[in-house]
């Protein structure tokens, strides 16, 4: 089973972000970390590959920097990585991103592609579905459980009410939610081995992807301040108001 896991390097979320004043794009430091939500995908991929035999290849797009984030995923146990880094891809929209990833995955070959549901820095949340379309395979999204065997993949898809069981034949794209599995901590040996693993570096032209389509960020505004909460004085009927409020918010 050839498993491909899409991962992304992002600025350390515990640090401070800056946006380029001209382009409004995120300024990316040399030292980026593995997007925490990608650890679930990597773990899922490793478990599937280990259970059925096979390998895990990481595919990533973005400025490679020091590759620290990629090494973190390799340290967990992935076998190799393909990183597409191209100045022409700066500010790519979701579709271009999906085209680049699809081309890189196509080139690598795959039975199963695993992604997170969305990146922690961009949050577009549409790349997995686009990727499936471009690869011409089924998209199984928001998985809280995944089983892949005998040429089939079955997932539990999270819904607002519970979950749907979705099944498709392989090859396929699966996006996994945080918590689908407990990501392992890289072992000391894994960290030391990671630097010896193969990392292939590609550009957009290596993949033949048209980079002319861009998104432009026209304006950025600070998020609105949080508003004060609602105070309900208890006159004996407060519970009804609380219930009503919770119903409005669709919590109950």
């Amino acid at each position: 089973m050839q498993v491909v896991v899409c991962v992304k390097q992002i600025p350390d979320p515990s640090g401070t972000y800056t946006l380029d004043p001209e382009t409004h794009f995120l300024v990316r430091p040399d030292e980026q970390v593995l997007d925490d939500t990608d650890r679930y995908g990597v773990e899922m991929g490793l478990q599937i590959a280990q259970a059925h035999g096979g390998s895990v290849t990481l595919v990533s797009m973005g400025p490679k920097g020091s590759m620290q984030g990629i090494r973190q995923a390799l340290a967990m146990g992935a076998d190799r990585a393909v990183v597409v880094d191209d100045a022409d891809l700066k500010g790519s929209d979701a579709l271009t991103t999906a085209q680049v990833l699809a081309a890189a995955i196509q080139r690598t070959g795959f039975d199963l592609v695993i992604t997170g549901t969305e990146s922690t820095d961009g949050y577009s949340g549409v790349v997995p579905q686009m990727l499936a379309e471009l690869l011409d395979v089924p998209a199984l999204t928001y998985a809280t459980e995944v089983e892949a065997r005998d040429g089939k993949v079955t997932i539990n898809r999270q819904t607002s009410a519970g979950y749907d069981v979705v099944e498709a034949s392989l090859p396929a794209v699966v996006s996994v939610t945080a918590g689908v599995v407990e990501p392992r901590y890289p072992t000391f040996k894994g960290i030391m081995d990671a630097k010896k693993k193969e990392v292939e570096e590609l550009t957009a032209s290596d993949l033949g992807v048209d980079t002319s389509l861009r998104q432009r960020v026209t304006a950025v505004e600070p998020a609105p301040e949080r508003e004060a909460g609602v105070k309900i004085e208890d006159d004996g009927e407060a519970h009804l108001k609380v219930v009503e409020l919770l119903q409005q918010k669709k919590v109950i």
Binding site: E31, Q72, A75, A194
Partner: peptide, 14 residues
Amino acid sequence: PDTVSGILSEAGRF
């Protein structure tokens, strides 16, 4: 230095 960085950040997370 990259190896040391990698070791320390993963150990720190642990």
